[in-house]
Design a protein around this nucleic acid. Structure first.
Lengths: 249, 249
DNA sequence: AAGGGCGGCTTGTTCAGACAAGTTCCGACC
DNA sequence: GGTCGGAACTTGTCTGAACAAGCCGCCCTT
């Protein structure tokens, strides 16, 4: 049993998906929805705020909400875990450790992971495949406090994040992502089977646990054409809302 | 005079920025903050939700909120207008129309802009510079209903979006962005002064007005190293999504 | 000294009501 | 027929209250 506003959001999402509210249509007013679920207007506002944050519906003061899009967006976990994302998209994903050893953190890594200069990190290099095609090279520096959990994993472990959560209770909670384009180095080129200097989509990200303590600093390099990042937004700035005594996210 | 929750959010952001709440520190509880501003708890929750969405603070049920980061990152929500973004970042930006003519929409453009096959669009090619350095090539297909506003602009117009808002009341309200990496074509290479085939960061985006009516479908190509996109998220919010390359593109 | 449990604190969810601000639409007027 | 104004509707902001759920530290036990 989930919470009420999540349930309302899910049912609305379903209604949009199955065409009851096509793209461009206006949703019922908040009070209509509140009546339908015997909920207060505030709870309904939490529900529609979820869909707004997902980019599915848009809203303006005074006018009824409209449907912008049908497809649903995916969750935080899928952004942090390549394996989990691949699974939900219906791909077979595989990965292998090519390299795994402790070394000193570079100045950049130390800064990102909030470590003292020269602290030890666990350096990991992995190659990721979708349906047997090499798609991404992943270079990660793990903070020392999570290193043991990573070192004990088998070389073909599919999802480090999943394993860490299960074995050590280390859970990714916050993330920051930097996205740009870089030319393939000679190692990248060999592993991804592209020419040296050809374009790669680079996603660097810092993952932290629930206390804001950094877990890892990662640089992923995707072969051009294999992956696209997708963002929806609206001017309404506040993707979040609240209402009588509560707000949501 | 802005609204109360925005004011609270701004003051909290300032306090974090000036070090009153350093990274890792715990914020006061909701009721403390409510007392301080003589506001209800609900209003305070709206304020902290703003900061949460910006990735500045994190929150977990039962525990006090913590500071994750000081700076406010430049988020996609603000990346509506290149000119506007450049200005807030302190750059001198310039741009020039290299090409501007009506033609038939390609099948992709027709789909994105929700137009019938073969409808007319206004095709625009612009070169964007930051501090006199060519940084981005922009290829836009404008829907016919906004074409007149664009055609009347001077060749060195800095911000089409600003002009359209002023002159015709056409306001960008919703956006969807697709981000990946592509090799520079020969035109791109000449304009951006890079070698052909060198990596470019590509941002395609669809802009719609307040009714969800498509305004433009744009393809921006940034020279590698000139721009990095940045996204923050946490377990409750995921503004960014990853899509497989070949499907649905 | 190490471990466990309980209680107080804090965030999450929900309710009902009120007013402000913006949109829509129809009807009156020119 | 077109335009202007206003009424009805809808979303945005805010209050105050209550309970649930999760976290943390203190204290007591072993």
């Amino acid at each position: 049993m989930t919470t009420l506003y999540v349930e309302i959001a899910e049912e609305l999402r379903r209604s949009i998906l199955n065409g009851e509210y096509p793209v461009g249509a206006r949703l019922p007013s908040e009070s209509d929805l509140a009546d339908r679920w015997s909920a207060s207007r505030g709870t309904v506002r939490q529900a529609v705020a979820v869909l707004t944050a997902e980019g599915i519906i848009g809203s303006r003061q005074g006018a009824r909400r409209i449907v912008l899009r049908r497809e649903r967006r995916h969750s935080f976990a899928e952004l942090h875990s390549f394996a989990q994302w691949a699974r939900t998209m219906g791909y077979r994903s595989a990965s292998r450790f090519l390299h795994r050893e402790r070394r000193r953190a570079t100045p950049e890594e130390a800064r990102r992971l909030a470590l003292p200069e020269g602290a030890a990190v666990l350096d990991v290099l992995r190659l990721r495949c979708l349906d047997d095609e090499p798609v991404m090279v992943e270079r990660t520096a793990y903070a020392e406090w999570v290193a043991p959990s990573v070192e004990s994993l088998p070389v073909d472990c599919a999802s480090i994040m999943d394993s860490m959560a299960e074995d050590a209770g280390i859970i990714a909670h916050y993330g920051e992502h930097l996205i740009d384009a870089v030319p393939a180095g000679s190692d990248d080129a060999r592993l991804l089977r592209v020419r040296r200097g050809s374009p790669l989509l680079r996603q660097r990200h810092l993952t932290s646990n629930q206390d804001g303590r950094p877990i890892e600093w990662t640089e992923d390099r995707y072969r051009a054409g294999s992956v696209t990042f997708n963002v929806s937004n609206s001017v309404g700035t506040a993707p979040l809302v609240r209402d009588p005594g509560s707000l949501l996210m």
